[in-house]
Amino acid sequence: MITPDNWDVLLDPTPLPLEMGYERLDDGSLHIAARTDMHGCTGEMFEWWFRWRCDTQKYVWWHPIDHLSSTWAGTLSPDTHVGSEHIVVEKLTDLPATDLLIQFVGAEEFFDAETYRTARKRGEVSCAVVGRTGIGHEPPRTDDGQVLGGRLLHVGRDTEWGLAMRSHFYMGTDLPATGATPDQVAAAVPIELAQGLLAHAYNEFTFLSRILPGLYVAEHRDQIPPVAPW
Score class of each variant (00 low, 15 high):
Gly74Lys: 02
Leu197Ile: 05
Pro225Ser: 08
Pro213Arg: 01
Arg157Trp: 03
Val147Trp: 02
Ile102Ser: 09
Asp144Gln: 11
Gly156Pro: 02
Thr93Trp: 12
His63Arg: 14
Ile224Thr: 10
Ala119Tyr: 01
Arg117Ala: 15
Val125Pro: 00
Val82Tyr: 00
Lys58Pro: 00
Leu175Pro: 01
Ile224Ala: 08
Gly172Thr: 05
Val60Ile: 15
Trp161Lys: 14
Gln57Tyr: 07
Gly43Pro: 02
Gly21Lys: 03
His154Ile: 11
Glu108Val: 12
Asp66Phe: 01
Leu163His: 05
Pro15Met: 04
His63Ala: 14
Ser126Cys: 06
Gln146Leu: 13
Thr3Glu: 14
Leu197Phe: 08
Glu19Ser: 11
Ile65Pro: 03
Thr173Asp: 11
Asp183Arg: 09
Val89His: 09
Tyr116Gln: 05
Gln223Lys: 08
Val60Met: 13
Ala194Phe: 01
Pro140Ala: 12
Ser126His: 01
Gly156His: 05
Ala201Ser: 11
Asp26Phe: 09
Ala119Pro: 01
Ala164Trp: 10
Arg132Val: 08
Asp8Tyr: 00
Ile87Cys: 13
Asp27Tyr: 03
Pro13Lys: 00
Asn6Ala: 06
Lys91His: 14
Pro96Arg: 01
Gly145Ala: 06
Gln103Ala: 14
Ala180Pro: 04
Thr173Gln: 11
Asp144Trp: 14
Gly106Asn: 07
Thr178Lys: 06
Ala97Asp: 08
Arg166Ser: 08
Phe205Trp: 11
Gly136Pro: 03
Leu153Ile: 15
Tyr216Arg: 02
His200Val: 00
Gln223Pro: 00
Gly21Met: 05
